[in-house]
Design a protein around this nucleic acid. Structure first.
Lengths: 346, 346
DNA sequence: GAACGCGTGGGTAACGTTACCCGAATCGGC
DNA sequence: GCCGATTCGGGTAACGTTACCCACGCGTTC
């Protein structure tokens, strides 16, 4: 019973048991060319009998790890599972296994997390909304096939999958203006040392908000709180915005997660949604659809994004070098959290 | 610039650059015995200059991977990030990196996910609420140091970290009875082929619910819907329970996630919470605290559980063989989703 | 002053898998 | 019935790192 001690069964054991060479076993494992059906069956039988499983490390020494690394900023954003479901669906038919690491709070920690994946020789790397500098992404993409999700920067080294955040933000702000709002505020994510290029999804959302406001002659009403796309960030941002005078009649949170935090702040301030303040989010996470919350949000098809990212990654692993850019057009999902402003003449 | 093609820098490159042997470099890397301060500095300098990073696969061939594998049933349960924060905190001071895989819908898929981690020779394995059979867990624990979180089974092969689900369920049912409820229903998770032993956390919660009901002379009021600890499962479960006549005045969902789904079902049925039906969950996820939801729930300190799991895992990696069992006592967090039943005489 | 011990550094053989190459056998075409 | 082509199987050398051992030189002890 002391399985711990017993040496794990290797390709040599299988070869001996089947009475063939290790080369033959290896060929069967990889379904490589030059092996007869009889040989295949014999080896397969030996593999099953011995319960043999190839060691990833030994394979990695010679080539593939059959591993796809996924970098997530955190595990709390309920939008990420949608992406991953799409990725899993794409990988299901292959021998590849996805492993997830989280990037942590700052660019430095995230960079270490990326290193950890590169050290483990993942065959492909999916980086979701990375915070590290563009140069770092290029460097990583030089070492391993990479797809970046959620960054608007163009690159010749990696593929990009993104939501058209400009359209999404336009939809939200347009919707609020259409309802009669003028004092529309925005909760965004503070940029952290990625240089000047406005390329992250939160920067695009914030910039588009400001642009639409200006285009509608509401330049003077622009009010932005930059915190983070998290519950805590939304809470702080909303508190900051509500403290202003006059206070906004609508808040566009750059992410549902932040909108949830804003809900708490609004409640604490004794304000009701949407009677006193309208609130909209982004991502259309499942919780947004809950009747008690019923949050107006922007739907970006995470499943499609994840599937596409997976497909692009597999293509890159197979050798494609040209860079692809895939964009999903989002749609607005109006719910009960947005309504005409309180003093509107309907 | 063609970094992709350039061979990655190895220990031999560092040795050459520093004018020492590869053995010496290896010793410095592992801070092993038998290396002078001068040697150490020289090698460190060479490492920095060349930007050397050890390859995990090559290390794995000789021993450790410095990787901790984490198996999660899914990514949507907001309780899991709390656990992982605790684990990360524990690992932060070490060289270990956590990688996450998800188990998928059934025991078979989960078993494959576990295999994937074992194949990658993780130094330790944390399995959160695993669905696979006990024998499988024992087998895995025989191959790699393992900690199981959320299962009440005892084992001599792996450590166990759990919440005292019996206390938790008692708190909820007691709370509801104290409010005057009698027709209290439960939404649980359907057991999937783990044999007869009632050891999963959902089985304990369901069994305790039934026990307390019986103890309070409410045996005739027992009503259970077995679906799954997910939004969809909660939705289906609540619909099933609400279709009964007379319908329950309170629902105890075995997980907040399921309670969220139940909320939708209640809303669709035109019932308000808590005026018509009281609702309680389990896990005290962040969303439960949202004022719009304000869900009565049971708090089990996920951070402590994660930290403990991490500590136990590290101890096991260091050689401990005895099995440890760590239990956290939960507390009730009453919120506005529970109140006396509608026809109570207060 | 010889013997011993200790501190320090290096040589080398694994670890398990695959890619490359080569040889043997079989087959088809004239 | 011979020759080239094709198919099938095996031998072997890596891949990068570490554990084990040995060698050398210096200081200490009788």
């Amino acid at each position: 019973m002391s399985t711990r001690q017993r040496r794990r069964v290797t390709i040599a054991d299988v070869a001996r048991h089947a009475g063939v060479s290790t080369t033959a076993v290896s060929k069967v494992l990889r379904s490589a060319y030059g092996v007869s059906p009889a040989m295949r069956d014999r080896v397969r039988a030996a593999i099953d009998e011995l319960g043999y499983r190839p060691r990833a490390a030994a394979r990695a020494m010679r080539g593939r790890t059959y591993t796809i690394g996924v970098l997530l900023p955190d595990l709390r954003n309920p939008f990420f599972p949608d992406i991953l479901d799409g990725l899993y669906e794409q990988l299901a038919a292959t021998d590849y296994q996805a492993i997830i690491v989280t990037g942590g709070p700052d660019a430095k920690a995230e960079s270490r997390a990326i290193d950890a994946l590169v050290d483990r020789q993942v065959d492909g790397l999916l980086m979701v909304a990375p915070r590290v500098a563009r140069a770092r992404l290029e460097e990583v993409a030089g070492q391993v096939p990479a797809v970046v999700l959620g960054l608007h920067e163009k690159s010749a080294r990696y593929d990009t999958v993104l939501d058209d955040d400009e359209v999404g933000a336009e939809l939200v702000v347009g919707h609020l203006i259409g309802l009669g709002h003028r004092r529309i505020a925005h909760i965004g994510q503070r940029a952290v040392g990625r240089g000047r290029a406005a390329a992250t999804l939160h920067e695009i959302r914030a910039a588009t908000y400001a642009r639409v406001m200006r285009e509608q002659g509401l330049e003077g009403e622009i009010a932005v709180a930059l915190t983070s796309y998290s519950e805590e960030g939304g809470y702080q941002g909303a508190r900051e915005l509500l403290a202003r005078s006059p206070r906004p009649t609508a808040i566009f949170a750059g992410a549902d997660q932040a909108a949830f935090g804003a809900l708490t702040a609004l409640h604490e301030a004794g304000l009701s949604v949407p009677a006193d303040v309208s609130l909209a989010g982004y991502d259309n996470t499942r919780l947004a659809g809950l009747s008690q919350i019923s949050l107006t949000s922007v739907d970006q098809d995470g499943g499609v994004m994840g599937r596409t990212a997976g497909r692009l990654l597999l293509e890159r692993v197979e050798g494609r070098r040209s860079a692809v850019r895939f964009s999903v057009t989002p749609t607005l999902v109006p719910r009960r959290s947005t309504a005409p402003p309180p003093d509107s003449v309907a």
